[in-house]
Design a protein around this nucleic acid. Structure first.
Length: 239
DNA sequence: ACATTAATTATGT
DNA sequence: ACATAATTAATGT
């Protein structure tokens, strides 16, 4: 009866067997990966790592949501994107960087696995499909940030907020009776930080949409009732 | 078309 | 009761 170093629970293979970067691996391989991982639970609002810090580890989000944040030179927070569970994050190694390009904060209580960064090249070399899968997600994220920048430059606030909401319900939405609710606490301040506006404008928009029955919102929660109507707002403006 | 300021109210612990 | 979040109106660029 010797459990030399890990007196605590052993990680179950089912944690990773269904998430894309690992799904093509077999049991023993996943076992191998899990045994090198450190699990950790984060309170909501905890900083996992900070922009510019040495990227010593990379992460896999098992549960919860991560908010990727950048600070402008003027000290303004800009929310770049949200990461749902089942995705890798903090993968500076994939970008060939040795520091994190942004700050990661939990948007809700979250659980993540992490590995030392030196294992990255090993994973890429050893596990078939790992590289291609991760670069796929990296690609989508960069694409997302790009469209966001284009939106900022071309669209009006109403359309930007509508787009932000649509992305949120697509990626992090949860089906409820009346529509789709954003699965983690989100304030108007947050929404304004992703759309480059003020919380006041966001508040007004949401109130207006609520009157039209498009959304329903309360403190730190937003439910989209009519996604299609929001999509319509995305298009050309109706004078 | 939007930000800013400010005052007021609601809501969660 | 207190802090944080949301609303609303008025004013400014």
């Amino acid at each position: 009866m010797r459990h030399a170093k890990r007196p605590q629970t052993r990680l179950d293979e089912s944690l990773l067997s269904h998430v894309p970067p690992f799904s093509r691996l077999d049991g023993p391989q996943i076992r191998e990966i899990l045994d090198q991982a450190s699990p950790r639970r984060f309170e909501s609002g905890t900083t996992v790592f900070e922009e510019g810090a040495p990227a010593d580890r990379f992460y896999m989000l098992l549960d919860g949501y991560i908010r990727v944040v950048r600070i402008t030179p003027e000290g303004e927070q800009v929310i770049a994107l949200h990461i749902p569970s089942g995705q890798l994050f903090g993968i500076a190694q994939a970008l060939g960087r040795d520091t994190y390009p942004a700050t990661a904060i939990t948007a809700a209580e979250s659980i993540a696995l992490s590995w030392p960064g030196r294992l990255w090249p090993e994973f890429v070399a050893k596990y078939d499909g790992f590289a291609t899968e991760t670069y796929k997600t990296v690609g989508t994220r960069i694409g997302e940030m790009n469209t966001r920048i284009v939106e900022m430059a071309t669209q009006q606030v109403e359309q930007r907020i509508a787009n932000a909401l649509l992305r949120l319900i697509n990626q992090t939405g949860r089906k409820v009776a009346k529509g789709i609710e954003i699965d983690f606490p989100i304030t108007r301040q947050d929404l304004s930080e992703m759309t480059g506006t003020t919380l006041h404008t966001v508040s007004r928009m949401l109130s207006a949409w609520e009157k039209q029955g498009l959304v329903e919102s309360g403190r730190k929660r937003i439910t989209v009732l009519e996604p299609h109507q929001l999509v319509l707002l995305t298009g050309p403006k109706a004078t």
